[in-house]
Amino acid sequence: MKTRAHHFGEERPLLLLSHPADRLAQSFRAFAEKQGLSVWQPRRIDDFGWSFGIDGGERSLTFTRFDTGQSFTSSELLGIFCHGQPPLDPARTEDGADRRYAMIEYSNALWPIWENASCPVVGQPPPTSTPLLFNFGVEARIEMRRLGLPAAPDTLVSFERLAARADIDPARTRLTRSGRYSSVLARHALSGELPFSEPAMLGSEMVVATPLGDSDPRMVLSFGGDAFTLAPRDDGPPTVENAPEPEVLALVQRVRERLPTPLFLMSAVRGQAGWVITKLSLQLPFWMVDLVADWLHPRLYGHFTGEVLS
């Protein structure tokens, strides 16, 4: 069992790379600090220094707290937990640098961290395994197929032709707009309850139709192979249920074997050929955090410290 090793007489900090407003990061930080861990969460990205070096086959990774001047190698950190957006707010642009450019430079420069850290890392995986990072539904399902995972089928159709498609049953189909990062669900579109203010633009927009399957969808949270099911409700957030049925658990294990990070959220439905994945996400929505905290936080803590909390 690992212990909380010390660095120069101080506890090794857990580096929390998340935006200060990220709900899971806030919640887990409070839990970890209550357990006595030292958590280093840069409030802004320019309070956080790092370097990644390549020298004749050798890699070096260094992290610096600009506020205290302390520096750490990755082995001197307890671990790195990344969730949601990093604290990308390069507010200090004293020389007038383009903030947008700086943000791109920051986020892309950080990629090597995930593969080269020698401490446990939870969160954003390296693009090696997931080039599309599961950001978008359609691309994520293509990525799942590449990884050999059963993904729900996707039909592409333009919005204006949707009503004429007899093979698409809006009551049994998830309709996703393709043109927004947030992918607004357009389930009500066919019934005339357009939730959008620009119907003229929608006419030329593409929609992705994904069958809802023959079963109620299963939303499963998994950490390190452990998993439990959340039952969706129409009138509020999901309720917490027990362990997934064996077929769904088998699917969770297959996903687990193919992802380099232990934490993921999976939605699945039973289709004609068995259970298929409709969504795979490495991030938890904010409304889920309080529901799953009692289950998740001790596991996260144990992953970083090696300690099992009773």
Binding site: F136, L156, G179, R180, L202, E205
Partner: peptide, 16 residues
């Protein structure tokens, strides 16, 4: 705009 970006995304997805 959203419609154009959506088409482009799906073109990439279809080619991939």
């Amino acid at each position: 705009v959203a419609a154009e970006w959506g088409r482009f995304r799906l073109l990439s997805a279809a080619l991939a």
